[in-house]
Design a protein around this nucleic acid. Structure first.
Lengths: 223, 223
DNA sequence: AAGGCTTGACCCAAATTTTAACATGGACTG
DNA sequence: CAGTCCATGTTAAAATTTGGGTCAAGCCTT
């Protein structure tokens, strides 16, 4: 079931949307300012974010900009103002919909449904790992760093995707060699080191996601 | 090339939108009231309809209701009023977007672009993939490049449509051979290469939509 | 039979993997 | 605290694999 994040500083409004959203069977999360929304998005995979523009700490636009750094979650923006500038900016930020207050709960629900209907085709079955600007799409077999596609040699890609699939787990050198090279591989001892070097180089600033466990092997940090 | 129908009783507004739309490369049709819009939609296949609410003869809502009787073309509604009732009614009629006057041309263009981007998969059961001037209509089994129909050999077409149906997904050579040639095919490994070459040649400038994944297979880039 | 379509064979350039030699750095020992 | 050992990092070059190009033979359909 789809999960929705409601981000607005007005508790009453959050409560109203929550009520309707839960009635429709959605899971609901809340945030009362932009910074909290960004944290929530990082921590939890939401399917739609409803974001107010005017909020203390961090406004909606800044929050969306930050969220876009690591996620393409659909966003519906709420605004009390009906200013031209805002709407254009919102669309440029990749906001999916823009609703002006006051609105009825029914309308919001219709828009959420519409977005989920559209999104349905893209999300299902996809497996994607994200850490800041680092994105590894296992389905597309594609790695992106800050939006730029990184070309990886087959072995390097295998190695990376193996780590991603086993993120947060300590992996011995034997295990890595067995899984990525094949259980009967017995080549030079430096082969793995060399590939680790190439992999770290390939993912540049995110190379430190791979921790060396001296005497053991390696571990890929989770998010 | 996408075709847009602008329906508004104000000729000046039609002219402004037309100018920007043509600048963006869209084909443009005009109608000055609902009844005319309905006739135009019946006669001609538009990809997006921009529909004013307030018009003589037949208002926008009635027109959309009537159009919905025979078409699922995406509709953007324009309204001078910002009333709750209207917006909810519009969404219930299956309107895709709702813009309140005054709006900037830029905003309308962004919304049209957004709708066309999404539309790829919606229009009444038709399944169409678009990337720039490249159009693959899976329903009609027809491929067009910059408006010119491209004749494809059966195998090449199968291959292309298979890729389009699985766009954005890494496909191994085995998988492609199994799906396009038949699960029990065991021919030469270079056969696929040869067909990939023919396919790339056939779609000319859009050949780079097909990404080679060395050591794996291929991926057709989405949009 | 002609013409287009599909397939298989061979070669080659380029990319990739592996090897091997050497450097580094952390941890343990005395 | 210094020395040593060994796991890991680095580099460059050799060896291998891969996919694309070309071409021709076989197979269909018309």
């Amino acid at each position: 079931m789809a999960k929705i994040l409601i981000c607005d500083d007005e508790a009453g409004l959050r409560a109203v949307i929550r009520k309707y959203a839960e009635y429709e069977g959605y899971g609901v999360g809340e945030a009362c300012d932009g910074a909290e929304a960004v944290r929530a998005c990082r921590a939890d995979g939401f399917d739609v974010v409803i974001m107010d523009v005017m909020m203390p700490q961090m406004d909606g636009f800044s929050a969306v900009r930050e969220i876009r750094g690591f996620s393409d979650v659909p966003v519906i923006m709420l605004s009390a103002k009906n200013e031209e500038y805002d709407r254009v900016l919102a669309f440029e930020l990749g906001v999916d919909d823009y609703v002006v207050k006051p609105f009825s709960s029914k309308e919001i629900m219709l828009r959420i449904a519409a977005i989920l209907r559209r999104a349905g085709k893209d999300t299902d079955g996809r497996v994607v790992f994200t850490a800041g600007g680092f994105v590894a799409d296992l389905t597309a077999h594609k790695v992106t760093i800050d939006g730029v596609v990184v070309e990886l040699a087959p072995k390097i890609a295998d190695l990376l995707f193996f780590f991603v699939r086993n993120k947060g787990i300590a992996l011995s050198r034997e295990k890595i060699l067995a899984e990525v090279w094949g259980f009967d591989y017995f080549g030079d001892d430096r082969t793995l080191d060399t590939h680790m070097k190439l992999l770290r180089k390939a993912i540049g600033p995110y190379g430190n996601l791979i921790k060396t466990l001296r005497g053991l092997g390696y571990r890929f940090e989770e998010s």
